[in-house]
Amino acid sequence: MADEVNNVAEALKFMVLGMGVVFLFLLILVKVVELQAKLIAKYFPEDAPKTPATPAGNSADEEQRKVAAIIAAVTEFRNKKS
């Protein structure tokens, strides 16, 4: 009987530890994600690769954008097909 009581106490300790770690993990995750969102919003303004505001002088950049557009079109087409 004493052993069983002990086991229950043990299980309760597991619960405290387990829930603690789960919440700790998720809280840190939430904080990191919030921070990450802020940093990205600051250094990579919304959808930088898609905005055509950049001057069209750079030909390599232009090329990349064309490729991106083609890929987007193809994936769109494929998605529609499936």
Partner: peptide
């Protein structure tokens, strides 16, 4: 995300239940 943590209470509650 915190809600996803709260639901894990089921796991540890069941742990106590199983030991009982």
């Amino acid at each position: 995300a915190i809600l996803g943590g709260a639901a894990q209470f089921g796991i540890f509650g069941a742990l106590v239940g199983a030991v009982v």
